[in-house]
Design a protein around this nucleic acid. Structure first.
Lengths: 194, 194
DNA sequence: CGAGGCCTTGACCGCGGTCAATGCCCGTGG
DNA sequence: CCACGGGCATTGACCGCGGTCAAGGCCTCG
């Protein structure tokens, strides 16, 4: 069991959580470990949880007809990842989530989020906060894909995920950027010469 | 004043709205007309409303450093468009919304959405429904941009917005697809030969 | 030591961008 | 009624970014 968790800190910071409220919640916080390569969600199944990453690294991706993977999102520590649409509409997801490193997550289901809202009104907006953040992030990503070339997107990526570069194989980053590993290699080579 | 509105139908269908509830709401529904080219939101200002398109067509786009426009979303009849993140976080938007045709919208502000939730509990989830739909749409768009070439994206576009092709200049569609008008012209030429 | 995964590099190519010319449609004014 | 001009779509020539394919190097791990 984890004593001083990132999740606790997250709640304290976002909502000025009181220690007394934490006592009530703690029992409901369900940690789960996944080892490298394990799936948290596969395309075709209905997503049940959001995952708060306590420690480790997840990826959220789709697979297109030709079999290629496209990473839509990385989720290192303190990120939340899920196919919320699948949860909400109760429809099969078309995405995968798996563990890039051995990972510990907090399992957030609808029941937990509801309880959260009851404990303190401030939490009621937690759900919307998560959704709004997600949308903002997706908008930035779309803007980047529509308007920037490979080099600019790579620099953006480094700003957004400062340490992910050191933690994952480059072909995953290429997949995130929408280019091939070879192209990424060339972009990096060019940048290192400045 | 519009009697039989798309907006009313939307509420009836989505939430099995009762006629009596509609009576209470009607007074709060604020229609507004914008003529072709007029702005509903400009980058740098804080977004205050969501816009339900009653009649007409809006576009939601960003402008990158080199001055090029990138259309993230079209909003024909029955679509809702907004920079919700700007509304929610109270921060300046980095997007523009303007009218592609003369357009009549329903102005949805936070107050209206709140009232909606009070009139009937079913509406309480309206807000989340809008956000979830938006996220789902953005995910599909990301997948399309990451994994498909210009031709495939164009065919996707036609499915999603069956009539928009006939209503807007092609350079706007090119901007939506992330290609140039010339490329779009070539894609269309190639497709017409099959 | 050998095998396999990953990164790099080179040669080649094609999709899509750029630039420029042309055509088309349509509204405006002589 | 026609002339003109502006906005948009099309087409061609050319080019460069990024994809593809193949080879080679460098790890780590068995």
């Amino acid at each position: 069991m984890i004593k001083e968790s990132n999740f606790k800190n997250y709640l304290f910071q976002q909502f000025e959580l009181q220690e007394e409220h934490w006592q009530k919640l703690q029992a409901l916080v369900k940690y789960q470990r996944f080892q490298k390569g394990e799936f948290l969600l596969t395309a075709g199944s209905i997503c049940q949880h959001s995952f708060f990453v306590e420690k480790g690294l997840l990826r959220f991706y789709s697979i297109s007809v030709n079999g290629k993977e496209h990473i839509l999102q990385f989720a290192p520590e303190n990120w939340v990842v899920s196919d919320r649409s699948s949860v909400f509409f109760g429809e099969p997801s078309s995405f995968h989530i798996d563990a890039v490193e051995d990972t510990t997550v907090v399992m957030l289901d609808e029941r937990f989020l509801k309880t959260l809202a009851e404990v303190n009104v401030k939490f009621a907006s937690n759900n919307e906060l998560l959704l709004q953040n997600h949308i903002r992030h997706l908008h930035q990503r779309l803007h980047s894909l529509l308007g920037e070339n490979a080099e600019e997107r790579y620099l953006n990526f480094l700003k957004l995920y400062p340490d992910v570069m050191q933690r994952v194989p480059q072909w995953m980053i290429a997949s995130y950027l929408g280019i091939t590993p070879e192209s990424l290699s060339r972009v990096r080579k060019k940048l290192s010469k400045n």
